[in-house]
């Protein structure tokens, strides 16, 4: 990363093979070596940028159109990132224009997908379309023809409003999770049966950590498809719907 002569790491450095945690970093006096301070600073910078970076809506829309899912685009009542971060309540509500748009677009499909920037637009930009592709491969009948909504400055619960306005039986929200230093691009997927404004988090199931060093697209797709099928047939999601997809599929390996 730099040309400086690195200080030696600690003699237990081979343990790094067992954990992504920053172990055996070495030290100079009590302090981190320069190369480790800079590595931490770079990771922090990447995560900070991931929070601030706006979703490239045009690119995402083009990718979805190419895949055969021309999306609708909506916006929460949080006009900008600064407001979004301070006012989670606004991130859960649609603007009047967005609500009116969806009201004219009622869908016959039971499931609607929301791709939302959340706290990491990077996550949705990189992983949402590949995940949708994996879902279609996993179960073409369920995932080939359904509406997709791209949502900006969105919290998870904005999916409830979107689902309600579209009259959907089920909403799948793919959203950027809070970026960590080791995972600035982690995608979370929240599943809610009978979405309506005011649903609580206890009424959702979640599949988290979808990213290249986390849960793979195929593994996530298997789990999501199982939960959607089970949720539709049992008419519920949340704490009463336990994820039993591991019983139906091989163990979900992280690559």
């Amino acid at each position: 990363m730099t040309s400086l002569q690195p200080l030696p790491s600690d003699p237990w450095a081979p343990l790094r093979a067992f954990t992504p945690a920053r172990i055996a970093l070495g030290r100079t006096g009590c302090a981190l070596p320069t190369q480790e301070v800079l590595a931490l600073g770079l990771a922090h910078a990447q995560a900070r940028d991931a929070v601030q970076r706006p979703l490239a809506v045009d690119r995402l829309v083009a990718e979805l159109e190419h895949l055969g899912y021309p999306p609708w685009t909506v916006h929460s009542q949080a006009p900008d990132r600064a407001t979004y971060l301070r006012r989670p309540d606004l991130g859960r509500r649609l603007t009047v224009e967005s609500a009116a748009l969806l009201d004219t677009q009622r869908s016959a499909a039971p499931v609607v997908i929301v791709m939302a920037d959340g706290l990491s637009s990077l996550a949705v930009q990189e992983h949402a379309v590949p995940l949708l592709t994996a879902l279609r491969q996993h179960s073409p009948a369920r995932w080939s023809s359904l509406p997709v909504v791209v949502a900006r400055q969105a919290r998870v619960a904005l999916g409830d409003a979107i689902g309600e306005h579209l009259g959907a039986a089920f909403v799948v929200v793919m959203i950027g999770e809070r970026p960590g230093l080791s995972a600035p691009d982690s995608l979370g997927v929240y599943l809610t049966y009978a979405p309506q404004i005011g649903c609580s988090d206890a009424q959702r199931n979640c599949v988290s950590n979808v990213r290249s060093a986390g849960l793979s697209y195929a593994a996530a797709a298997a789990r999501i498809d199982w939960l959607v099928a089970a949720g539709l047939s049992r008419r519920l999601t949340g704490v009463e719907l336990k994820d039993e997809s591991a019983a139906a599929h091989p163990p979900l390996l992280r690559d």
């Binding site: 920053r22 990771a43 922090h44 960590g180 080791s182």
Partner: peptide
């Protein structure tokens, strides 16, 4: 005391 101040499970510093 978190290794390198980076909690790789809870995603915070």
């Amino acid at each position: 005391g978190v290794p390198g101040a980076d909690d790789v499970m809870l995603n915070y510093q």
